[in-house]
Computed example of a mutant assay.
Amino acid sequence: MFSLKLVKFSFLLFYVILQTKSDSLLRKKLNKIDKLLTYPGWKNLNDVNSIEYSNRKYCLKRLIETPTYKSKCEQKVRGLTIYLGCTYAKVMNNLFSIIINCLQTSRKKSNQENGKIKGCICIEELINIVATLIIPIATLMKGAIDALDLLHRLPWANFKRAYRRPYILSPLLDRIGNIIDQLNDPIVPCDDKSIKSSSFDIVYSFSYCMIGNLKYEINRYCDIKPYDEDYLWNEWIQEYKALFRHGVRLVFFKFLTKKIKDYIKTVIKEKYFQLGFKFNPIIENTFIPTPEEIIDLDLEFNNR
């Protein structure tokens, strides 16, 4: 009889310990979410009107202002993850729209006299832009989405693909690095084949496919504020022409690289660090700091 009571007491004690530990972990998670949403960048996100998930519509203002109750925690994490994915989808759509416009420009150059070499130089510059600018920002974006997702009790990232909902944007961002693997295959020298083959086709097909996939993601979840997809390209072209008219002679792709670099720096600052995400350069991983950690946003940004 005594041993039976001891067993019951042991089970009860074990249950209390587990429940206490679970409550403690949940409280830490709730505090982490609340702390994250105090960063100024969240209130400045304005590309998306609302998102829809599981037949429910969410707007960012409501997600931010609603207290993170225990019963609403999972719902809030899903809403924020999808909203961030929609925001990043627009950024990547902007970047690949610029790549498409550049490729079309390089194709025109290749059809002109002495255009093959110029066209090939354009492709080489574009490959460099993708490798050194677009892939790194895609890595940061994927890290931020994954870090938010991990706050959920059942993270999408832990589900087998066949049994889960589409994981908003994260797998797509992961695929962006694949283009470099394709381009690392031996490339035919510029003076042997026209710009229409080889690397041109790879970059063009990949970019066109990415835009299609991004639009699918956006249409599935996101109510994006209407905008001209070529607004950045048109704005930069007008700026370049204005500089040219005033006697400033710049190589177009050097000008373009600088504009893309400036745009990406702004995105990283306003839509990554100012949202409270932190990057660990040692393990190349994004994480959400604990409420006790103090982050100097300017220092974090300048170290990138």
Rank of each mutant, 00 (worst) to 15 (best):
K109A: 15
H246M: 15
K225H: 10
Q75A: 08
I211R: 00
K8M: 06
S50Y: 10
L63R: 01
I17C: 07
D296L: 06
T81E: 04
L4K: 13
F96W: 11
N114M: 15
L172H: 13
K70M: 06
K109I: 04
L140A: 05
V91F: 12
L299K: 12
T66D: 06
V130Q: 07
S207L: 08
R78E: 07
P155I: 08
K29C: 03
G41C: 10
N285T: 04
E74M: 00
F159W: 10
W233K: 02
I99C: 13
P171V: 06
Y272L: 11
L80Q: 01
F255P: 00
I268C: 03
V251K: 11
T87L: 13
A138I: 15
L60H: 00
T87C: 10
H246I: 15
I82H: 00
I145F: 02
I137D: 07
A144W: 01
G177M: 09
S110T: 14
G143W: 01
C73F: 05
E270A: 07
F287A: 01
I64C: 06
R107K: 13
L151E: 09
V203Q: 02
L25Q: 14
T66S: 05
L154G: 00
G247Y: 06
Y263P: 03
L60V: 13
L256K: 02
K196L: 10
R62C: 11
N46R: 04
D228C: 08
L126K: 02
N158Q: 15
L173G: 05
K259D: 05
L63V: 15
L151T: 00
L256Y: 04
V248I: 06
L214M: 04
S71T: 09
L18E: 03
N44I: 10
V7Q: 06
Q274R: 09
K196P: 11
K72R: 11
S197P: 02
L26N: 01
R78P: 01
H246N: 13
L299F: 06
E125C: 12
L250Y: 14
E52P: 03
I145T: 02
L154S: 14
C73W: 00
L80F: 05
S194Q: 01
S197R: 08
I283Q: 03
I127R: 08
Q75W: 00
N31C: 05
Y69G: 00
G115A: 02
F252T: 06
I294K: 11
L60I: 09
Y39K: 06
N55T: 11
P136Q: 10
L36D: 02
T66K: 10
D146I: 15
I260Y: 05
S97R: 01
T132L: 15
H152P: 09
D185L: 11
I100G: 02
D298A: 07
S71Q: 14
V7L: 10
K57S: 09
T87Q: 12
Q112P: 02
D230I: 05
N213G: 09
S197E: 10
Y53D: 02
F287S: 05
K259L: 11
S22Q: 15
Y167K: 01
C102N: 09
K160H: 13
